[in-house]
Every structure is written in C-alpha cells, then in structure tokens.
C-alpha cells in the first residue's frame, strides 16, 4: 500500500443538497496533497468525513489500508478553517488538554510541548491566557496543538490565513519538515501560489464532484499547450514578425525584459520540437528569451472550473 488515505466514491447529502457526489481520492504516503476547489465545492465536507466528524452516506474511507475507526483520530492532526481556542484558558493548560484528547499521556505531551514552544520561541506564553495573545500568536499555538501528537496524517484547511508573511513562511517550512519526517499532508486551500510551492499531488473538487486529480507535474504536462514565450531582437522586426506569423500560431505576450523587442507566445504542433522552433527563430533574429509556457495551478484551476 502506497496510499495512506483512500476515499472510495464517497457521497454525502444534507437534506436535499448533495455535498459530495461519489468522490474518490488517494493520498500517497509522504506526499503533500492539495485539495482544491472553489467555495462550497465540498472540500470541508470531505475533510470532516476523514476526521469522522460526519459520516458519509455512501462510500468508504480507508486509512493505512483499514476502514476508518474511532481510534484513527490519534493518527490524524486536523487544523480546521474555523479554528479557535478557549479564550479564558491558559495556553499551556489548553495545549495539554487538547493533546490528551488526542490520546497523549500528560507527561509526554508536556515534554513535546516544551520542545515545540522553544522551537517556535513562544516558551514564555505558557501561563498566558489566549485572550491576551494576538490572532497570529494564537494561530501558532493552534499549529503546535495540531502536530503535537505526531500524526501520520496532517490535514490543514487554509493554514496560512491570519499569518503575516514571516510566520506563514515559518509554518510552511515546518510543514515541509514534517513531510520530510514521514508525515502525509492534506492541504486544502484556494490560494494557488501556496499550492505551487507545496503540493505534489492535487485533487480538484467542483460542485460536489471531483473533476481532476493526479500528480501536479503530470497535470501540468497534460494542460500544457506547446506554447513558448519568446523575446526576439532584429533590425527589421516587421518582416521577421510576418514570417513567424506565417508559419506558426502566434499570440501577443507580455513579460519584463530589458530590450524593446518582439514579444510573442508561439504555439507549435506536436510534430515540431522545441529545438526546431529555437533554431528557426535563431536564424531569423537574436533570441533573448525562450521559455515554455507551463500552466500555473491557478490557470488549471480556473480553466477546469470554467469548463465544468
């Protein structure tokens, strides 16, 4: 088994509203899995099913090859989008309580907490009440509480909202570190730049259906249009331009460049290799810029959602 979590045609109805329609995902061990989708697509419902907060109407979910059982909550760390802490409880007490709810022994939880608090330089908060902390500070505590019991599966729902860029980076690094230590991460968001940075697998939900999933690179390959962004310089640019337009499908392009030259997106057939294009262009003009246009997660997201 290489997949830590497998959801098999999971459906969930709320009254007459179908929140999930036979959604299947497989999250490989040690991966960072992006669960993407517009608002109301069913991401949170799926996550809640994995956390056994709600039960699926149909379909099964397996963790590590076994159907979900109540004991599995020890193996999962969940940072929900709607998050908070008991405001009038002290930081240390609260973290201990939440850790014990996840099945940790008190002494172990204490020493692990000490480790994390030192690591994130928040050791002197132990006796503060949550209401004395800022929102970002409380989020840090929340993150520690989520990962404290060393779960196999970490689920983050919009983890970076509420963090300033410095702390967001800190948390991002910690997530990557946890992945390197063997944890599997499900990462739900609609902030595509963080998907680009973190995820190696994605699944896209839209209107309760899964419309796309797989390795991010494979998907990108699938979505690429054999388009190259080129910047050229020539004495007689008009004739060069005419010649290119004659031979290839051409779109205008915008990118930053030192020279005021020809900027184009050139789409080529699969019969032509990128080298052929490059040597053709080199024979006509001076090539300053030659990049294959790879669709961003954002492009894929928007295009797929639009087409559905």
């Amino acid at each position: 088994m290489n997949d830590l979590l497998v959801a098999d045609s999971v459906s969930k109805n709320f009254g007459n509203f179908k929140a999930l329609n036979e959604v299947s995902i497989a999250v490989p061990k040690g991966s960072i899995f992006g669960l993407l989708g517009p608002n109301g697509a069913g991401k949170t419902t799926l996550i809640r099913i994995i956390n056994q907060i709600t039960m699926p109407d149909e379909g099964t979910v397996q963790l590590d090859g076994q159907p979900l059982r109540p004991e599995h909550i020890r193996d999962i760390g969940y940072l929900p989008e709607e998050r908070g802490l008991y405001k009038s409880m002290k930081v240390g007490e609260q973290a201990l309580y939440l850790a014990q709810l996840k099945g940790m022994a008190k002494t172990e939880a204490k020493s692990r907490l000490k480790y994390w608090f030192e690591k994130l330089e928040i050791g002197d908060w132990w006796n503060k009440k949550i209401q004395e902390l800022s929102k970002g500070q409380a989020q840090k505590i929340q993150f520690v509480v989520t990962v404290l019991h060393r779960p196999k599966l970490l689920i983050f729902d919009e983890p970076f909202s509420g963090f300033d860029p410095i702390n967001a980076n800190l948390i991002k690094d910690e997530i990557l570190k946890l992945r390197d230590e063997g944890a599997t991460v499900i990462f739900s968001t609609h902030r595509m730049e963080s998907v680009e940075e973190l995820c190696d697998h994605i699944a896209l939900l839209h209107k309760s259906n899964k419309i796309l999933d797989g390795k991010l690179n494979d998907i990108k390959r699938e979505f690429k249009t054999n388009t190259f962004e080129v910047g050229l310089q020539s004495q007689n640019s008009n004739s060069v331009l005419a010649e290119i337009k004659d031979k290839f499908e051409v779109l205008p392009a915008t990118f930053k460049n030192l020279n005021d030259d020809i900027k184009l997106n050139i789409k080529i057939d699969e019969s032509i290799s990128s080298n052929d294009l490059l040597s053709f262009l080199a024979s006509k003009a001076e090539v300053h810029h030659f990049v294959e246009v790879i669709p961003t997660a954002n492009d894929i997201f928007i295009e797929t959602v639009k087409n559905n």
């Binding site: 109540p70 929900p80 998050r83 908070g84």
Partner: peptide
C-alpha cells in the same frame, strides 16, 4: 455557545464524539 463563538468546537469534535 462559548465553544461555538470561540470556534474551538471543530478542533474538539475531531478528537471526541
């Protein structure tokens, strides 16, 4: 109500029934 307004409920509910 306090658990709802402080939004801790989902964290708790992912650990206990």
């Amino acid at each position: 109500i306090e658990e709802k307004t402080s939004r801790i409920i989902e964290v708790i509910i992912s650990s206990v029934k």
